[in-house]
Amino acid sequence: MSAPHDDTNLGIAALAAPQRVAFPPNWPARIGLLVLALYVAYASTILDITWARFIIGLDHGAKFLSRMFPPDFSADKLSLLYVGMTESLQIAIIATVVGVLLSLPLGLAAARNLAPPPLAWSARALIALFRSLHPVIVAILFVKSVGFGALAGILALIVASLGFLSKLVAESVEEMSMKPLEAVRAAGAPFLSVVTMGVLPQVIPRFIGFAAYQLDSNLRNSALVGIVGGGGIGATLLTAFQRFDYDFVLTIVLAIIAIVMVGEIVSGWMRRMFQ
């Protein structure tokens, strides 16, 4: 290399004196990751999660899987499955329909642009209460008050549907345009007509989508409320677990997955039809 070249190189190096790194180390992120790793280690000891237990579990898992396969499709089991599944389906349908019907008035009551403030706030508090209670806990309470069986499951899922749907109704009512309402009011319409002619046409198309989603989620949850005594396939599943009928457990789980997938297809089809 000749001297002039050296000079230019030196010049560039001098210009770039505070050396720029394309990707400087991100210290906050590194410290964050370290804290996360420490937390994982700490929480694992608190929860008594050890490698040895995990290995023993995997050993059990192998036995478990061998007892699950092949799934049990014998006739008596299939009839049990059919009874449980129909009940779950019925629970989901009734809970969704009743939830949809009740969530419209509750959602309207919670909309701050329509309802007077005291009503709106009490409706909002009720919705918040419904939303924060897990369906399983609600089901336990209903099992105590109306006894074991499908009714407790239906009531629990109605509460869950109300929490979800009313909140969305209230939100979409608050977002809607007030102009059609003013027009309807100016024509001298009573309150009920204002709702049916001014509010519902704006809210319904989105609401159908929410209702379809809720049917989906009620189908999923109807398998759940049975575990605590709410009837349906959950009860069948818990019984199969307690009897160590693991091959039948697999049949039930496969059936639940199939029904949830069919439900997803149907609700997607519903949404497309109404939008």
């Binding site: 929860l47 008594d48 999660i49 237990r53 995990f54 023993i56 579990g57 995997l58 059990h60 898992g61 478990f64 677990f241 693991y246």
Partner: peptide
């Protein structure tokens, strides 16, 4: 997982 690892947080 309760059937596999026994009851508990794991």
């Amino acid at each position: 997982f309760v059937a596999l690892f026994g009851p508990g947080a794991l």
